[in-house]
C-alpha cells in the first residue's frame, strides 16, 4: 500500500500538523486523511505545496509498504 510519511517528516522539521495545514492551505481534516492513509488520490498541487513547505522531494513523502490498500468506503 501507498503511505504518506507525514509523521516522520513533521517530527524531523519539528512542525505540527496544524502549522503545516496553515502553511499549505489544506484543511486539518484532509491532512489527517492523508496521514492515516485513507486518501485515494493526491493532487499534484497538494504534493507540490507539501514538498515546498517540508523542503523535501515527493519520494521522501510517499512510500510503498507491503499490504493491501485500505478498502474503498
Amino acid at each position: 500500500m501507498i503511505m504518506i510519511q507525514l509523521d516522520r517528516l513533521l517530527l524531523e522539521r519539528r512542525m505540527s500538523l496544524t502549522e503545516l495545514s496553515d502553511r499549505v492551505g489544506v484543511t486539518l481534516a484532509n491532512l489527517s486523511i492523508l496521514k492515516t492513509g485513507k486518501a485515494r488520490a493526491v493532487r499534484f498541487s497538494t504534493l507540490d505545496a507539501l514538498c515546498r513547505e517540508l523542503d523535501c522531494q515527493p519520494g521522501d513523502l510517499i512510500v510503498q509498504t507491503p499490504g493491501p490498500q485500505p478498502e474503498e468506503s
Partner: peptide, 8 residues
C-alpha cells in the same frame, strides 16, 4: 463523489 472526497 467518493473519490473526490478522498482526494487531497
Amino acid at each position: 463523489r467518493d473519490e473526490q472526497l478522498t482526494t487531497v
